[in-house]
Amino acid sequence: METVKKEKSVINTIVIKFDAISQNESFARIAVSAFAGVLNPTVEEISDIKTAVSEAVTNCIIHGYENCGGVITMELMMEGNTIHIMIQDEGVGIANVMQAMEPLYTSKPELERSGMGFSFMEAFMDDLHVFSEPGEGTVVRMSKSIGMLPRMVRDMDEV
């Protein structure tokens, strides 16, 4: 009888909870770049992931918790060469997710927000899902595969 050999993929997960204060935006970026580092990403790939995480965490701080603080949960999971990221708050939630995701839309124009947060997450990651319930909070799930092009091509692209 022939046995089908399944390729084992490495699974690694970390969960971090931190206060919803703006100082932690850079902490979240450093954490995700350290986590993704083992996949040997290019400068551009790591920059994409950091930008997406920065946008999601900033959203939790200024929209989810409306600058009044709270707890943000960030879960990072590595499955093979794919990074799955979940960022969650238990803040005010979003009544109309479709509208919130439109480029240039911002519910807080007085804060000089560009309305590009979700657009950047969508552009820089392979996929993005947003779940929200008013009064319950918001969950952002996104993922990105690292090294989809041969390393040499990816490095050349960066010159």
């Binding site: 950091k50 900033t58 560009s114 947060g117």
Partner: peptide, 13 residues
């Protein structure tokens, strides 16, 4: 070394 959409807000503002 790093800029996200907040930088866009600074420039537009």
């Amino acid at each position: 070394k790093f800029m996200d959409s907040a930088g866009i807000g600074v420039i537009i503002g």
